[in-house]
C-alpha cells in the first residue's frame, strides 16, 4: 500500500524528470533550427555552384574568352565549391542527428518514469504540476521527437540527392573530357536545356524540403511547450 510520502516522492521525481525533459527539448530544438538555417545556406550555395557549372559552357565570356583555360579553371573552382558545400551540409545533418538524439533523451527520461508508473501506479492520471498528467506530458515529448526523427530522414535523403546529382555530373564530365578532350559538362542545345531544367527543378525541391521541414508542425511543437511551461508555472 503506497503512503502519501511515496506519492509525494514520485510526484517530485516526475517534476524533476519533466523539467529536465523540457530543457533537453528546448536545447534540441534550438540546435535543430540553427542547423536547418545553416544547411539552407550551404544547400543554396551548392545549387548555385551546380547551376553555374551547367551554364558555364554556353556562358558568353567576351574579352575574358581570350584568357586560356578560363572555363577549365572556373570549372575546377566550382567543383571545389560544390565539394565544400556538400561537406558543410553533411556537417549540418550531423548536427540535426545530435539534436534528435537530445530529443530522444528527453523522451527516454519520461518513458522510464512512465514504465515505473505502469509497474507500480502511484500518480496515475494525477497532475505532475498543475493539470497535466505524466502520460500526456510523455506523449507530447514523444510527438516532438517523432516529428523530428521523421524529418531527419528527409534531410538525409536531401543530402543523398545532392550527392547523387554531383556524382552524375562528374560522370558526365569525365565522359565529355574523354570524348572531346576538354571540359564541357553542361553542353548546349535542347537536350542539355531540358536536362538542366529538370535538374534545376529537382534541386528546387531538395532546397524546399530542407527549408520547410514538412514533417515538423512548428506551431504544434510551440503549443505543446507553451502548455507545459504554463502548467509548470508556480512549481
Amino acid at each position: 500500500m503506497a503512503t502519501p510520502l511515496d506519492l509525494r516522492n514520485r510526484r517530485r521525481e516526475a517534476q524533476r524528470a519533466v523539467r529536465l525533459a523540457v530543457n533537453a527539448i528546448n536545447s534540441g530544438l534550438d540546435e535543430w533550427k540553427a542547423a536547418v538555417g545553416d544547411g539552407k545556406q550551404h544547400a543554396t550555395a551548392l545549387t548555385n555552384a551546380i547551376l553555374t557549372q551547367l551554364h558555364l559552357p554556353a556562358m558568353p565570356l567576351t574579352l575574358l574568352g581570350e584568357a586560356t583555360e578560363l572555363r577549365a579553371a572556373a570549372t575546377v573552382k566550382l567543383l571545389q565549391q560544390q565539394a565544400e558545400a556538400v561537406a558543410q551540409l553533411a556537417g549540418c545533418l550531423e548536427r540535426l542527428r545530435c539534436a534528435v538524439e537530445r530529443l530522444a533523451e528527453a523522451t527516454a527520461g519520461l518513458q522510464q518514469l512512465l514504465d515505473s508508473e505502469a509497474s507500480a501506479p502511484l500518480l496515475m492520471e494525477g497532475a505532475v504540476f498543475a493539470t497535466l498528467p505524466l502520460r500526456v506530458l510523455g506523449n507530447m515529448a514523444a510527438e516532438v521527437e517523432r516529428m523530428h526523427r521523421a524529418e531527419l530522414d528527409v534531410k538525409a535523403a536531401v543530402l543523398h540527392g545532392f550527392q547523387q546529382i554531383l556524382d552524375t555530373l562528374r560522370a558526365a564530365e569525365d565522359r565529355e573530357r574523354k570524348s572531346k578532350g576538354g571540359l564541357d559538362s553542361g553542353g548546349v542545345g535542347t537536350l542539355a536545356a531540358a536536362r538542366e531544367d529538370k535538374l534545376r527543378r529537382t534541386m528546387q525541391v531538395y532546397l524546399t524540403a530542407w527549408l520547410l521541414s514538412a514533417h515538423v508542425d512548428e506551431r504544434g511543437v510551440e503549443a505543446h511547450l507553451a502548455l507545459i511551461a504554463s502548467d509548470m508555472r508556480g512549481f
Binding site: 528527409v154 535523403a157 546529382i165 528546387q204 525541391v205 531538395y206
Partner: peptide, 15 residues
C-alpha cells in the same frame, strides 16, 4: 517560382 517543381512528381528525385 518553386510551386511548379513541387507539383511535378518527376522533380522529387530521391525524395
Amino acid at each position: 517560382s518553386r510551386i511548379p517543381a513541387l507539383e511535378d512528381p518527376g522533380s522529387y528525385g530521391v525524395l
